[in-house]
Design a protein around this nucleic acid. Structure first.
Lengths: 337, 337
DNA sequence: TCTGGCACTCTGTGTTCCCGAGTGCCAAGT
DNA sequence: ACTTGGCACTCGGGAACACAGAGTGCCAGA
């Protein structure tokens, strides 16, 4: 009973603070929310909440502000993800449906999410780890050069130019192409190294150096692209917000692929929404910000993650709703293509 | 004589203001630069310069600050582009040399430029307008789907998935592929529509619907990509600077492809450095910022542009030097690949 | 045409003062 | 055992004010 009310007070504090951006006092709370008790009682509850570390006061004679721990409790137990409105859902759907290729899907998604949440959106390209080879193509560019193109089932295309050790005619290229496709078609990218390991030995002796060159490029491109690409949008939305730390640090972090990677990657559970609040984030420079992350993917496999980053003082229910919805729609689009 | 000194005063004002970020007064000017005259004389010159609109004073009793017109004169007649140091040149070279494909070149370039100038760097992808077709590839994905891949001589790859009107076997695809390559190889992208116009009529009747479908996708992809991709980096560098207008507006402009396009595109001369200062820029929201743009390209053809954007109060000689140098190195890299 | 001198004008900063919101605590009421 | 009204206390932030310092414009003399 008493405990319940105390939680209600915490919820009210979070909600008010998020919407007004001002420390909230006992009197205002008693007025705006009908908690059925007097300001004095609320003050007592607040003292306890502060004792327990859920709220804090900026100055002695100011109202209370939620701490990271307070937000955490709010997100875990006091709030419900808020679904999007019908209009918003339709807008998402039609906006994403127009995408022509994987690049386009990612670009549209990140912009959409930024606009929807009015925060910084972050989207990771579908990882190659769970993709399979759809086709390998060798395109002669000149006598001693060819372009190597790898197409995956997620629509991603990797290409490399290969300098050849010798002059090679079209017939030999065709043969190699056929052999490569035969051994790799449908094969998961992680298995590729195994599959091609013995390939040179299955070829005529004179083709082996050629095959070796191409394979080394192939393997290299797999390794290299393993560190995934991440894009963001909506940096302008940070301009107004008051991050406790400087805006500069946040922008710098956003441009560091590595930081972004870990930001999205270090979430434990892929199928649910992950929220990391303020100091829960290991990176200084991102103190004062929170992130909401969801996994997405085609079919039942989670391929990558997307999310938004904003000030700790954000509207979690709404943001979580938007992230979850966008993740679902993107998954849908990818599954269909 | 007098005129010369007045210009020297303007130059000194610009240099001091750029380095100190504070309105510069007659006394400080007389001390820091040996102009050989007294502060009083300088005051007279400053009065004239203000009359002519080259400088202004923020408040009645403050020093002077260059106006956009003043910067313009400085850039046009009072400054010399400052070449990079040897160390910087070597750093550029080695950093760019490691790029593996066109995407990589652009990404590295934009980061490099941002770091070098400590401002926001903007790089446009090589335009397709002057590229030629190196190869067209058709990759069957399933019975009624194939992937269409277009490779250009600049290393750019466009791909599209095509839904076919009928089930098509490999032989017919091969034939179509050969025909396409025969007519398009080496052809400039702008000529493609002409070249393929009569192509269906040269094919057997039963192949015509198939060819038409594929061609429509091809043409569409050409038109669509005509609005070029532009990337930027170094937004964090804006955080400290004081744009006269809000940081938010600038960030918003940077995320608008269209604005960026026109920003880079509306330069008259491709072979030289273009500088647009403050209000010379047509976009509100970018008042208070200047841009320095250079063209780059492989061989003698200018393919695209790159540049940096920063506060009007920037070090023009250094910035211009960096932009010019990077543009040259990128051109070199592209020509070699 | 340049220079030193001088009166004038501001901005920015520091000080002081005071209002009001908000708290913590206590004693009384349920 | 909670809850409530009352009350004294604290502190941040805005308004009013004074003041020093930098810079200017102008003028008379070299």
């Amino acid at each position: 009973m008493v405990d319940d009310r105390r939680l209600a007070v915490l919820r009210a504090i979070v909600e008010d603070y998020v919407s007004t951006n001002e420390p909230v006092g006992s009197k205002a709370l008693a007025e705006r929310h009908n908690l059925g008790v007097s300001p004095a009682t609320i003050r007592n509850d607040m003292a306890v909440l502060e004792e327990q570390g859920y709220i804090a006061q900026p100055h002695t004679s100011a109202g209370r502000v939620p701490t990271d721990k307070g937000y955490r409790l709010f997100v875990d137990r006091l709030s419900q993800v808020k679904p999007l409105s019908g209009a918003e859902r339709r807008a998402i759907e039609s906006f994403l449906a127009g995408a022509v290729d994987i690049d386009d899907v990612v670009t549209r998604t990140v912009r959409l999410l930024a606009q929807l949440t009015r925060q910084v959106a972050v989207v990771q390209y579908p990882t190659l780890t769970h993709s399979t080879v759809r086709h390998v193509e060798l395109v002669p560019l000149s006598e001693r050069r060819l372009m190597f193109v790898l197409i995956t089932n997620t629509g991603r295309v990797e290409q490399r130019v290969v300098e050849l050790p010798e002059v090679v005619d079209e017939t030999r290229v065709a043969h190699l192409r056929a052999t490569l496709n035969a051994s790799l078609d449908g094969c998961g990218l992680t298995e590729v190294p195994d599959r091609v390991a013995d390939l040179p030995s299955r070829l005529p002796t004179e083709d082996r150096p050629l095959a070796a060159t191409i394979l080394s490029v192939l393997l290299e491109s797999l390794v290299e692209r393993h560190d995934e690409k991440i894009v963001f949008a909506g940096a302008a939305n940070l301009a107004g917000a008051d991050l406790s730390v400087g805006l500069r640090d946040v922008l710098e972090a956003l441009e560091e692929q590595v930081v972004l990677m870990r930001l999205l990657g270090e979430t434990s559970d892929l199928s649910a929404l992950t929220v990391r609040i303020g100091s829960e984030n290991p990176y200084t420079g991102l103190q004062g910000t929170s992130i909401v992350v969801a996994g997405y993917g085609s079919g039942d496999k989670q391929l990558a993650r997307l999310g938004v980053l904003g000030p700790t003082r954000m509207d979690y229910p709404v943001t979580m709703g938007a992230v979850r919805a966008v993740a679902r729609y993107v998954s849908q689009i990818l599954a269909a293509s």
